[in-house]
Amino acid sequence: MSFHSSINSYSSLRNLGLLALLLTCGLSISTGPLAIGFINSLKGLVIGLVNTVTAWDPGTLAPHEQLIINNVRLPRTLLALCVGATLAQCGAVMQGLFRNPLADPGIIGVSAGAAFGAAIFIVLFAGAPEYAVAIGAFLGGLATTLLVYRVATSSSGTSVVMLLLAGVAVAALFGAGIGVLTYIANDMALRDLSLWQMGSIAGAKWHFVWLSAAALVVISWQFHRSAKALNALLLGEAEARHLGVDVERLKYRMIFLCALGVGIAVAGTGIIGFIGLVVPHIVRMMVGPDHRLLLPLSALLGAVLLLIADVGARTLMPPSEVPVGLLTALLGAPFFIYLLLKQRQRLF
């Protein structure tokens, strides 16, 4: 069978993606107020990664350069990588779960729910440890996903209209909730909140890098294990059940994992929209909807795209930074409108 042809194109795309990932990581590390050459950036990347385990310095870069890489650019680069890969995969899985290519953590309100969960901890429990904020974001994301799923899905599938309307309603609700929190917040919390709603990777901290990396490993592994079942689910819930898929368990596991991924991503970077919409769509155009190929390639492309967007956020208006969430929205929203127009006949 010529199934192997798509496998071949998959492995060449995967290799291309890995190369692009390396290059964008180098680009991300070399970009900033202090110019560091591209080759030196790659070397600094490797040294910096080793430095997370042991203090080893061959003296390839000047000490202040390595210091900037270790403390500022490397965590930022890794956080963008993890969050991009997580959001793209969660988007792909949600689209599979809702059997609709328009589902995205940002659009259906999951990110807003996660942000609200995080905001509660920032404002009402000022001084709460950051993992508490992440737990708040996870719980907010989980509650929202369950709510939207319940509202939008019936036995015959998910209605696009109900899905988007539920997303709008939920996003408005949590937006208002965040508004109330803004009103009662002190100045310090206020700054955090506004940053949260726009999404930014600036000021990435190592402990969020580790948290996001751990989340990325867990969800990637679990999603990969469920790839065939997710394919079957696209036939319909009853059909998947007839094929031997434990549909209820699969659905709730996927919802839990998406909330985990999106929650931790939001806790680390705030709301970064449209990665989960745009990336899986582009990958489907290249290799088709099979989750076994879609998920790993979405992870790679999501990481690359968010890294590029973050480099753009740093360089567009120096010396200040554009929040990267604004950039992804500026690029992603028109794409979303294009998808809506393409689907227009199927919507009503």
Binding site: R99, G157, K228, N231, A232, L234, H242, L243, G244, G288
Partner: peptide, 29 residues
Amino acid sequence: ARELAVLPQHSGLGFAFKAKDVVAMGLYP
């Protein structure tokens, strides 16, 4: 699933799988 299979009246599938990949979904169990 290995002993009893069901063909519903309508099967909705909105995603652009290749025909052979749809048939290969029967391999799941």
